[in-house]
Design a protein around this nucleic acid. Sequence first.
DNA 1: GAGTGGTCTAGACCACGGC
DNA 2: CCGTGGTCTAGACCACTCT
Lengths: 248, 248
Amino acid sequence: MGTTQLDSVPEPKYWHLKTVIGEALDTDFSVGEILPNERDLAARFGVARATLRQALEQLELEGRLQRRRGVGTTVAPPRVGVDVSTTRHRWPGAADDSWRPVDCGLPEVPAAVARLLDLDPAAGAPVHMVRRIRLTHGQPVAAEQLYVPASSVPALTAIDAPSGPTRARAVLRELQRLTLDGQDRAVELGSARAEDAKELDRLPGAPVLVVTTRYFSAGRTAALSLGTYRADTCRLTFGDAGDLQIAS
Amino acid sequence: MGTTQLDSVPEPKYWHLKTVIGEALDTDFSVGEILPNERDLAARFGVARATLRQALEQLELEGRLQRRRGVGTTVAPPRVGVDVSTTRHRWPGAADDSWRPVDCGLPEVPAAVARLLDLDPAAGAPVHMVRRIRLTHGQPVAAEQLYVPASSVPALTAIDAPSGPTRARAVLRELQRLTLDGQDRAVELGSARAEDAKELDRLPGAPVLVVTTRYFSAGRTAALSLGTYRADTCRLTFGDAGDLQIAS
DNA sequence: GAGTGGTCTAGACCACGGC
DNA sequence: CCGTGGTCTAGACCACTCT
């Protein structure tokens, strides 16, 4: 028989689908264009809807597609570069930095946060939590929880607004008065908590890049930031030489 | 009837499952311990296996679980911090840097790579591709493709081994002779190509953090690195954030 | 109300690892 | 060989958005 080479390791259907659809996106579709719905696509490729969805999920993970319930599946624009470099040593909230303060409160801090702030978990020292949203081209790309021990901003009076954006700005303003000795940063994959998902216009559990930043002042950790970036639409950039190239 | 509050927005089953299992991991299991198999777990929670798997997939994405076909599901150790800071301006391959050269060749470069290297796609100028694996605690955490235009390392003779680890080391050695003016870096989410997945001991399509680095010398891009890091086991650190822990 | 993607079910078979 | 996770099917219903 003239059968072709046996597939010693046959490729899964969804993997093949992903390749085929991915190539079609490059050639037959333009950014923003809407794809046929999942039932049609599945029928067209002769697979079950669940299998087709596996392929679409991967393409969405890679930022090639955007899916919205009740609307449809569209071709995603290229990911936007979001600068998260640590080379400029600045406190959060400095001289407008594309973040919009949303709220502020004095929550109980998770044990993991307390540990990173070098706080005694049992002591229950008060910690401000500033909540901010980062916008790029008018779209929300990140939600942040910034933990600031009250001891870092002692001059802050409780007389001002106890919560809300005004309070958030007050905390950030006080932070600028400290000397920033340094910062360090880590990036890892996570899934969006319900609260963050809402602000990012995603469903809970959506893949996100979690950026953890410690701000050091006077030999201690003066603030801790937990940034949640949309993994589908963002590319985090650390550019200490990004502009060398523009000359071309 | 004494029914409890209606769920105005009922929580999906898999989301609830994820929470329940996640808490169980903290209290009833220790690192490396093996969980009951998926069929048992699904029966125990009274859900279909597909629903249970959705919960496990999320926990794996968050680095809490590790699943291996033919073996089972185990509790994952905390993610390892992998330093990818750009503060030390060094070429890849300098004074051993936890990377192991694997191979080298002169492949056709993808159009996207050619563009980042400022090469004329039509010209077909030769480009070395060095392939390296990064090990941490003996485990592979990243696979890299380092593209070096032949024009960046003109002294490299073709007389040496034309491919293989020896050739890779020769290319890296030549790179050290150039002055490194700067570098920039970007991180985004991707899924593992079949080739990388194999080296990382994962299935194709596994979530990975793609780190793109440009190395500048003499006003041009002298090399381009595409690093593929296991997203389940790695936390990328910038600065001395090595001891930052997940705060989920 | 119509149409979309999101969730869920109850099965089946396959690929892989260890025994 | 058996048990594991990985793939796949053919349905069903739900939540959401737009008209």
